Simulated scan of single mutants.
Amino acid sequence: MPDTRWSCRCDAVQIDVADVPSGGVPAICYCTDCRAFARLHDATDDIDPAGGVSLYSTTPDRLKIVDGADKLACQRLTARGPLRWFTTCCDTPLGNGAPLRGVPFFSVMTAGLADYDARPVARLHRGSALGKVPKPHGSTYALLVGVARRVIAARLGGRWKDTPFFDDDGSPVADPGRPDAEAMRKAYGTAP
Rank of each mutant, 00 (worst) to 15 (best):
G24D: 04
L144Y: 03
W6T: 08
M109G: 10
R149H: 11
G170L: 00
D91H: 13
R119D: 09
C31F: 04
H41A: 09
P21Q: 08
D167W: 00
F165Y: 08
G51E: 01
V20S: 02
T58E: 01
V108F: 07
H137M: 05
G95R: 02
V145I: 15
A191E: 10
H137Q: 10
R101N: 01
G146H: 13
G95S: 00
Y188T: 11
A111V: 10
Y116I: 12
A36R: 00
T4N: 03
T44S: 14
R80T: 11
R101F: 00
N96R: 07
L144V: 14
A98L: 06
T32P: 00
A148Y: 03
S7Y: 05
A50T: 01
T44E: 15
L143M: 15
Q75C: 09
R84T: 03
R9C: 11
A183G: 03
V121R: 04
G68T: 10
Y141F: 08
A153V: 03
V108K: 08
T110C: 04
D48I: 00
A114K: 15
P134W: 10
D3R: 13
I28V: 15
T87A: 14
P82W: 13
P21F: 11
A154L: 07
T87S: 15
L77I: 14
W85Q: 08
G97R: 05
A183W: 01
G102A: 14
Y141S: 01
C8S: 07
A12F: 12
P99V: 07
D169G: 01
H137L: 13
D16M: 09
D167E: 12
C34K: 07
T190S: 14
T4H: 14
I65L: 11
F166C: 05
V13M: 10
C90T: 08
T163Y: 00
D169E: 06
V133A: 11
W6Q: 04
I152D: 00
L63V: 09
K132R: 15
T190I: 14
S57N: 13
P179Y: 05
S22A: 14
Q14D: 09
S107V: 03
P99E: 00
G170H: 00
D45A: 15
P60D: 06
L144W: 06
D168R: 02
F106W: 01
M184I: 14
Q75E: 12
P134I: 10
A50R: 07
R62W: 04
P164A: 11
G189M: 07
A114P: 01
D70L: 10
P192C: 07
A38W: 00
K161Q: 10
I28H: 02
D48R: 11
A111Q: 15
A129T: 11
A118G: 14
V108G: 01
P49G: 03
F37G: 00
D19I: 04
G157H: 09
V13C: 05
V145S: 13
A79L: 08
K186N: 08
